[in-house]
């Protein structure tokens, strides 16, 4: 019956991992603004059109750093 120890400790560990993830996400401010990210993700389509222009410059920038 020692399997119960294993199951219990595994389940509690999983729960704690998620709990810590929650605390960290709050601390980083993910819950401060719950509106803008939802709007922002709709902009992506538009940015792709110009990707060909901008990608060249971004590559240049990234090699500099």
């Amino acid at each position: 019956m020692s399997i119960i120890f294993l199951l219990l400790s595994v389940s509690i560990c999983v729960a704690i991992v998620f709990f810590v993830a929650f605390i960290v996400s709050v601390k980083r401010g993910q819950y401060d603004d719950t509106y803008t990210p939802a709007v922002r993700m709709l902009f992506e389509d538009e940015l792709v059109q110009e990707a060909s222009e901008t990608s060249a410059t971004t590559i240049k920038n990234s090699t500099n750093e």
């Binding site: 603004d33 509106y35 803008t36």
Partner: peptide, 9 residues
């Protein structure tokens, strides 16, 4: 470089 908007605030 970049800018981020917080809409509610």
């Amino acid at each position: 470089y970049n800018s981020t908007v917080n809409f509610p605030a």
